[in-house]
Design a binder for these strands. Structure first.
Lengths: 190, 190, 190, 190
DNA sequence: GATGAATGAGTCTTCATTCAT
DNA sequence: GATGAATGAAGACTCATTCAT
């Protein structure tokens, strides 16, 4: 008996992300995914019951790993500014290294596959992050404004910076990164 | 494009934006656009040679009007902070009032239709805005960092705030809006 | 504007019946129907929303015309035996002339498409026929046994005779037909 | 066919008959047969080289046992009417007890798998039965009409009666059965 | 110009069959 | 022999586009 092949699963995921990066969800076909992953179309259906299930599963995977990257290596004893900068960098790096996943996620939000369930997952995943921001707010490190404002400001900053670096409009130098984080931090710090 | 009937043209554009808001570019079909616009499929081809041409035309329209909204009512003699706040509000309001167009634009960036040409249009349209930001920078009103950083920070702030208001995570009060702009301004001001 | 084409509808129906006669419902594909009918596959979906709807519509058509043939030309004033023989002949002729429809119907009864609704149609259509049989029974022309028994005996006789004629096991002579009807009539007459 | 495991072979046959009873040959898939039989798809190919071979083998099995049931317990010394009634009952009981096989057979006749070979088998199997009918005819017990007419009349009667009992349109009482056979016998007896 | 039926290439999905384990 | 993952051709259905009216 031949067991399901983890390697194949990874190939399918990677193929999908790569294709979405190239032309978005619009043109994404099962045939193209299979070709890119080096398997037969039928094989996709061994691993996923339908295109929808494939999309949802990849969303969950991408969302989970992306979010997980955020707090990686966080040192609770370090000063807040350093911690936030570290996370800002974490996220930036992850976005750049896994740009395909990022594009996938952003396209997914306005797609026929996005559902309430998808929204819930998102909320669950950033729980720790929210707690941290609120604790910083309580200690008057961050401005006393609604938490969502702080979080989205932070996320937006990473997003925009990543886009600039990717498009080449901004070169990746320590100075530029520091500046970019500075804009963010000066905005949210108390 | 033969502007035989302006009303029909508008109906087509509106129908397309509305549909994209609902389920993204993925499921968008000419048949659905025609139905939503109240015309026959064949009629679409009277106004646009192909789906691609329709998409590109709508992109240009949405991009142009969206950008135009930014500097509306700008008073060159007012203090910079007020001017920027005014523009920030302009843009926010436009995003909320024409959310469908916004979704269309964001989906368009990673679609099979996005091209170099599209990118150029974008650059051309924000020329005035870039000039204004650079002039503010020269007068040491804004930080001395690459212009793109300032612009994207500003744009990102509007974007994230609009999303929060739309999702209901943040209620639209003067105070909240002031706070949101505050995060942005504190980040970019010198 | 091009209106839906009745001729095309007929071609689709005929093509379907012809194919089912050849190889049964098993191998029946939309592509084959389209090819046989001389239209594009897509055209089938202009006339029928799905394969299921096509099947159901053809069932209703075949069932209706088949049943209608039974009492055609019936003369209520003629003696019962003549009337029944006439109908027996009617039905036999119809079965032979429209054999493809007959095969379709018989296959349809044990297919994924047969439903309660289908069963109801059947009952509705033979109402007059049931009445006639019961009236003959009341006048002691036919045996005093459950009506369904008389009806099925009659139907079975037509069915089996038609099969014999078609297969060539029995040649179509007046004498043979008279004999065949005789077996039926001797069985059901009082 | 390698009769490695008789139990498995029976499970496959039974599974197939059961599935065909439910939705006919149309939806019948090897995967479904395997699932219903409790084996892996690959296993089916250990016992049958292809789907076609499976179908043909099951046809032969069903046809053989069905026909065999007819003359079971026939007493050549009993009066003809009793003998025929006994066989009529035999067949009726078999049809009801093995309805799935009956459906299979009837669907098979108009399927892509029915062949000349299949037809020959049929003829060979009912040889004895034909002889009996002809001997009865010679002794002027049955009408002097073509044998096929007598045989089909008999078979049709069983068929129709079984359908009525199965559908519940006729309840299974001794009286009803006697009536049903009566219709048949009165038709064919000399 | 406006319509919507017609087209057939292309989409998702299934399925008989094979093959590595 | 038994398994079920893997295959890719084929099936139902869709859709951008054309064309007769």
């Amino acid at each position: 008996m031949k067991p399901k092949d983890d390697e194949k699963l990874r190939a399918i995921a990677e193929a999908t992300f790569a294709l979405v990066e190239q032309t978005g969800l619009s043109g994404l076909t099962m045939a193209a995914i299979a070709r890119e992953a080096g398997v037969a179309t039928g094989t996709l259906y061994v691993y996923f019951k339908s295109k929808e299930e494939l999309m949802v599963a990849l969303y969950e995977q991408a969302k989970t790993t992306t979010t997980a990257s955020l707090m990686q290596g966080d040192d609770p004893k370090a000063p807040f500014r350093s911690r936030f900068q570290r996370m800002w960098m974490n996220w930036l790096d992850y976005r750049l290294a896994h740009y395909a996943q990022v594009v996938f996620l952003e396209q997914y939000y306005n797609s026929p596959w996005f559902s309430e369930e998808s929204r819930n997952l998102s909320a669950r995943l950033i729980k720790d992050w929210v707690d941290l921001v609120e604790s910083a707010k309580a200690q008057q490190i961050l401005k006393d404004v609604p938490t969502v404002l702080l979080i989205n400001s932070f996320a937006g900053s990473v997003r925009e910076t990543a886009n600039l670096l990717r498009s080449g409009a901004l070169s990746r130098t320590d100075k530029n990164l520091a500046m970019a984080f500075g804009l963010c931090w000066d905005g949210i710090k108390a």
